[in-house]
Structures are given as structure tokens and as C-alpha cells.
Design a protein around this nucleic acid. Structure first.
Lengths: 154, 154
DNA sequence: TAAGATTGAGCGCTCAATCTTA
DNA sequence: TAAGATTGAGCGCTCAATCTTA
């Protein structure tokens, strides 16, 4: 090992600090998502992935989005989104609608039943995110977190 | 809605700041894990979940752990761990060994081939975590992150 | 040719049931 | 009875192939 290498050399062991900053991040994410999913499932029979889709649609213009845009915004592949939409449509929470501008495409539209269920689930979600995550930080720290995530593009 | 409720009332909308702090966290985690998994798979044909198991075993006393402890430390169910161990054993990276203290239990032990592969994969992992995550923060910020994660128990 | 969307095949996970030993 | 581990059933996802329209 060269003496000129810094401690943040690419191949060097992660320092305890680096390890904790990274592993803690992974641990917290896994725990929180598992908790959130369990709470939504228990209270509303709605998995977290379905909740995310309903939120996107409810907040979108005309309560609808193109399937491919929806896939991107919920971090799913197109095929994964297509199958999730199948389940949501089967449960009456969304409907697929024709896209007149581009006949290749399709819209997913949230139904009144979807809006109603989302109306019940949103308070559960917000309360859970607040108590399990946001409540651990003051306003300044939340600003820091926002700035931290903005640095990472992907 | 009561006038006495604060803006962080449990059921109120998430503020833009809360939203960004939370959604950014989810986005960054999803992106980084996807990237990491792809790089390990490409360079070493080793999924991230298998990498995590090999790291735990390599760092454990006698290069071995009980199946249930291993499941806990890689955030998997027991059955999920059992099936992942099947694949790793099939590929010769680990072996199951009898547990003489408690005949109900089993050890997973990393093999020389497992250690060798991990030796190649660790630099890839470290370099990826550094360039995609750790490099975005200075030492003080890493300390902050460590302290942030420590607040959240799960 | 390429892009949007879906479908077939199959992987990796969890839950519930089961087997074994404490 | 309970705990460690595995197995059967089945869910939710991705990749590659396919269909449709731009």
C-alpha cells in the first residue's frame, strides 16, 4: 500500500464513519418501508407500491398519467407498472383510458373509488412518515437532508 | 380543522420541505441500490444480496454465522435466507455446517471460493459506494448522517 | 426504425405449514 | 410448547419478445 494514498482511496476499507453513514442509510430505509407497507396493508389493504401510484394520479392534471411516465415516477419497469395497473384496475381503483394524441399510448386514470381509498390512506401514510422519520429532525436538519439528496443525481 | 393545530399536525399535508426530505431519501436509496447491484452483477456476477451475505460471513468469527442471525443482519426472512443460502451453496460460495451446540440450528460458512470472489468484489463495492454516495459529503456531514440514522431505531 | 405498452418465462421473496430438536 | 430451519404455494418484479402505432 502506497504511503501517498489518502484514507478515502477508492479501494481502501470503508472507515467506521463511512460504514455507519452508509449502512445506517440502508437500514433505516428498509425498516421504514417495511413498516409503512405493513401499516397501509393493515389499515387499508393497500400495498405501498399501489399507494404511490394513487398519489401520483391524484396529484396529476385530470387525474391521469401516461403509463410510461407513471412507471418512471414510481421507480418501476414498464412491465412492472403494467402488471401493477392490472391489479389496481381489477380492484376498481384505476381505469385505463385511450390516449387520443398518441394511439400507441394509454392513460391510467384514478377512479372515484381510488380517490376515496386514497383519502383514507393518506392520513395513515403521513402520520407514519412523520412519527417514524420526520419527527426525528428539526426544520434545519430537514433542510440539510433536502440539500443532501439534491446532490445525488442518479 | 382546529385553529390550534400546528403545521406538523399528523394528518396535515406534508410541507414541501418534508416531502423533499422524505422523497429524496427514497429516491436516492432506490437509485443507489439499483446501480450497486448492476455493477456487482456486471463485474462479478454477484447480486447485491449475495454480496451482503458474503461480507457478513467473512467478517464473522470463524467465517460462519447461524442462519437466523444471518437472516436478521441482511434484513431477510428466514425462508428468504434459506433460499439465498441454497443458491450460494450451489455456486460453491458458502457451505452449510452442522451446529454441534444446538442440533436444531445450522451454520452458514464462507468457502475459500467465496472469500476469493468477495476479495474481488469488495473494491468494486467500495468504489461504487464512495463515488455514488460518500463522495457527496464531507467528514462533518458524514458525522451528521451517522447521528441521524442512530436516532431511528426500528 | 423507434417508442409505448403488454405478455411469457422465470427469479427472488414472503407467508403458512412442516419437520426436527430444545 | 417453542425455536431453528426448510419447503410448498404464490405474489410482484424484471428481461426479452411481441404487438401496435408514430
Amino acid at each position: 500500500m502506497s504511503l501517498t494514498r489518502s484514507t478515502s482511496d477508492d479501494v481502501a476499507d470503508l472507515s467506521p464513519l463511512e460504514r455507519d453513514a452508509w449502512r445506517g442509510f440502508l437500514r433505516v430505509q428498509a425498516c421504514l418501508c417495511k413498516q409503512l407497507d405493513a401499516q397501509l396493508e393493515l389499515a387499508h389493504r393497500l400495498p405501498l407500491s399501489s399507494y404511490d401510484v394513487l398519489v401520483q394520479l391524484a396529484d396529476a392534471p385530470d387525474h391521469r398519467m401516461r403509463m410510461c411516465d407513471l412507471a418512471t415516477s414510481v421507480l418501476l419497469s414498464r412491465s412492472g407498472m403494467s402488471r401493477l395497473a392490472d391489479r389496481l384496475e381489477r380492484d376498481g381503483l384505476i381505469k385505463r383510458c385511450a390516449c387520443t394524441d398518441d394511439a400507441r399510448g394509454a392513460f391510467a386514470c384514478i377512479t372515484p373509488a381510488g380517490l376515496a381509498l386514497l383519502g383514507e390512506a393518506r392520513p395513515t401514510y403521513r402520520a407514519a412518515v412523520r412519527s417514524a422519520f420526520l419527527a426525528s429532525f428539526d426544520e434545519h436538519e430537514l433542510e440539510q437532508l433536502r440539500a443532501f439528496w439534491a446532490r445525488i443525481e442518479c
